[in-house]
Design a protein around this nucleic acid. Structure first.
Lengths: 397, 397
DNA sequence: GCCATTATTTTCCGCTGTCAATAAAAGAAA
DNA sequence: TTTCTTTTATTGACAGCGGAAAATAATGGC
């Protein structure tokens, strides 16, 4: 059933080798010379680093049939063989678990979701293990080994220690989830905060490729944010960073569960929008879908609710841009389904509140398929694998 | 007159050597073993890196007379010989130029200020050159060479290019100040933003020593901020970062010169405080000193003006803490002279607005002698010197 | 078949930092 | 005084990385 884990290690023993591999991974097929230029190394270094990776099957070589130049020796393209290894990514929310099986290039091969009724650690662990087992069965069908498991949880997560310090949605404190999951599944486990995991996926495979400073903002139940500065995801000295949701925008705004008033999340989070929609329209509004419907139907005041949310998000993003000067901000999240309702406000209020050249920051949106969060977890697992970061491994107990 | 520049280079050719030198510079006298531990290197590496630095006189050796352990070979302390080299730091404001002569340990040896009446590039350059000349004369008296000049200017400054992109106070755009100053003074010049320069001084010689993530917030005419993330000062993709002054705290707040309402600077900047003080007390208030006096005299409403400013600053700092999770925030600036008037509010509103563990962030204050800004510029020059960063050097005319 | 051109590999080579062994500098014990 | 013990510093051998340059490979054009 694939539950035996032959721990495989990645044959990139030097920093240069890791760097070249990630360059090829992010920038698609490259000639050795291009890879050298991109990574700031000599061609000789690339040849040397690439050889063991080719031999181990992580990289493969193609002739560049497409764009062969008129003159000179044709180049050989090097690319990552996605099918060489598989990873499982799992996102745990308060009411469901989403799992994906991805290849080494983080392309999704299978996706599954299971509802979560019991938030106790045991129950969550059992559900997650079942999901992982199911996905590994799919991997067995492909005849490829699963080399790692990534788990994404919202809240305060210590990746290095593999511990969920505090998760409001799950009501967990100090749960050593990585170790538990490693014991249960027999896989090396990487645990990270959900938005940070998503950001790793963007950094390596998405709209953050090639950027050393950018931010990801997620809009949905909560308003999340993760930052990449100097090419690395910011983790914060105390495990908390990117709390754009609790940046206070308006001291006269609605109260937030954090105890303040006028937090971005208290204006633009799902719950806030639904509550406000009820208040404004006087109708019973059960969830976001209904709120969106009301706004689309043009019910009086409904659009203003979204406009106000968009303004709050735009000002939050402007605050990030003013403080960090990122090259790009990527907006994503489930809330994006209503993007047409607040896009304009986001742009306007960002433009108004961004100071000086911070306004040059490129604000993009990325639709977020439901599996994307889990894919982020897989990206974190891939990152641990190829950088040979010590992960939590199945012990003997 | 000291205007001959024998360009001296720093004998630290490997990354390890630079790292060891900065370790010794920041952490005072160290034994070789301690330096190795701090820098994460072997003792052998320290011995090898230290030798050429001792020979060149940048480091010196002392016996550790003070705390000799009972047992074993007594340690030899290695420390930086501050007197080995001198640097000049200059801060240019809208109405004066402050200059200091510092040693290699960034200790101030001489300080001078000259008023600035004309903001034209030529005039500023001439005043600055005079100041530098005067300080170099002091260096000649000590018989030590000046090895670099640092210049700090507020606004949008491109350090790598040595260009002032935009300075509101000086009304400059795209002035290649580093090159001009290098030609005028014959010294290698490092140009940087004033708050970033101050932050380098804190990182190497102040309250930021040993921290990889912290922020410096300056309170005065403007509210400035610079951030250190992953051990490096954040410069921003478009040259703007740390604009805490234009983080909008209150959409109903007073209008700011940036076009928004309720920016931190529009509430807590000097001009805002003075204006508000006039409004509230109905008296003519000419400057901050008078505003402070009124508050200290207990004039009705005067304290509230400062309380409000403190609240704005505290919320701005909380925003930084929420987004970046720094280990420490260092508050400094001329405005600190009135610190007793808003300290409490800063702490309270920071505590209230910081989310979760972000509240663990250590908020400190550092009094700021008037020469401190110029000392920051000197620190930037020292940094360029010891990391052998290419600086703007005197050309041939 | 020869040449120009571009890509890749090979062959040194210098350099860095580690390791393990050794020297040095005490005070303590004999 | 002579040896130990303990801790610090130095030395020399060494493995490995990544660069420069030369060699080799693969083409299309003559």
């Amino acid at each position: 059933m694939g539950s035996t884990s032959r721990t495989e290690t990645f044959p990139a023993h030097t920093p240069a080798a890791s760097q070249i591999f990630t360059t090829v991974l992010s920038h698609g097929p490259l000639t050795r010379l291009d890879a050298a230029r991109r990574a700031g190394l000599s061609a000789a270094a690339v040849t040397k680093a690439v050889r063991p990776l080719l031999e181990a099957g992580y990289l493969v070589e193609d002739a560049d049939e497409a764009a062969r130049p008129a003159l000179g020796r044709p180049a050989n393209l090097v690319r990552v063989d996605g099918g060489r290894a598989l990873f499982v990514g799992v996102k745990v929310t308060g009411d469901e678990i989403i799992g994906v099986l991805t290849d080494l290039c983080c392309r999704i091969r299978l996706a599954r979701r299971v509802p979560l009724t019991d938030r106790a650690t045991r129950a969550v662990l059992a559900s997650a293990a079942g999901l992982v087992q199911e996905l590994r069965a799919g991997a067995d069908d492909l005849g490829v080994a699963v080399l790692g498991l990534g788990i994404a949880v919202s809240g305060d997560v210590d990746r290095a220690e593999g511990v969920v310090r505090y998760s409001p949605f799950l009501e967990w404190r100090d749960v050593p989830l990585a170790e538990l999951a490693a014991m249960t599944t027999g896989l090396p486990v990487t645990l990270d905060n959900d938005v940070r995991a998503l950001t790793i996926a963007e950094q390596w495979f998405g709209a953050g490729v090639g950027l050393s400073d950018f931010a990801v903002v997620t809009v949905g139940a909560g308003i999340g944010c993760a930052l990449v500065v100097h090419g690395q995801v910011v983790a914060g000295a105390h495990g908390v960073a990117g709390e754009i949701g609790h940046v206070a925008i308006d001291p006269a705004g609605p109260p937030c569960h954090c105890g303040n008033r006028g937090c971005v999340e208290a204006i633009a989070g799902d719950a806030a929008i639904v509550a406000r929609m009820r208040e404004v329209t006087g109708r019973p509004v059960a969830d976001t879908a209904e709120a969106v419907a009301l706004a689309h139907q043009g019910v009086a005041g409904a659009r203003e609710v979204y406009a106000r949310a968009g303004e709050a998000i735009g000002r939050g993003i402007a605050t990030v841009a003013n403080l960090l000067g990122p090259e790009r901000v990527i907006i994503s999240g489930e809330g994006l389904t209503a993007y047409d309702l607040f896009a304009e406000q986001i742009r306007d209020s960002f433009g108004a509140a961004a100071f000086g050249s911070a306004a040059q920051c490129d604000v993009q949106t990325r639709p977020l398929p439901f599996e994307e969060w889990a894919r982020g977890a897989a990206a974190a697992a891939i990152q641990s694998f190829i950088t040979s970061t010590p992960t939590h491994r199945p012990g003997k107990g």
